[in-house]
Write a protein that binds this DNA or RNA. Structure first.
Lengths: 84, 84
DNA sequence: CTCTAGGGTTAGGGTTTA
DNA sequence: TTAAACCCTAACCCTAGA
């Protein structure tokens, strides 16, 4: 049972963008803890910020096909011997 | 920002497991300094070893003998099969 | 200073749902 | 169906205390 989806508002996106400009990407918790942005992002987690930033970045050029789990019949053995 | 994640290979996991078998848990630097394992773990730090051992879930199940040190002329083969 | 232990955070694959 | 939103968790970070 996942949470109800809550669409990102323009204010939230703006706060996220400004936060990334200030701290750089990968500083999601820092952005959330910044009082300059916190009030706009009160309902978002650091993981939410990361996911949203990824979605924004993928808009332009994400033409990769879906990753496919393949279980083929080819395989290789690697054998190692450790003296203990 | 952020360091690129380097997924652990089966060779690295095998070296770590053998290292823990030889030295016991909590001897990450000893494992790293052991010429027997160093070549497989060249890209890993002692903290990386600790973290990997933790999320392998080996701490709980092997706690009763976790600090046991094994020495002698015994050896073990580690056989890995990769599907391509 | 170095090293480990353990809590905290991020990255990226995977899944769900409007 | 598609993609934004959300989930799972391995991998990595921070740092007190030994």
């Amino acid at each position: 049972m996942g949470k109800a989806k809550k669409r990102w508002t323009l204010e939230e996106e703006a706060a996220l963008s400004a936060g990334v400009y200030k701290y750089g990407t990968g500083k999601w918790k820092d952005i959330l803890n910044d009082h300059q942005f916190a009030h706009c992002l009160i309902n978002r987690s650091n993981v939410d910020l990361k996911d949203k930033w990824r979605n924004l970045g993928c808009n332009a050029s994400n033409s990769q096909s879906s990753s496919r789990r393949h279980t083929g019949s080819r395989y290789v053995f690697i054998v190692q011997m450790y003296f203990l």
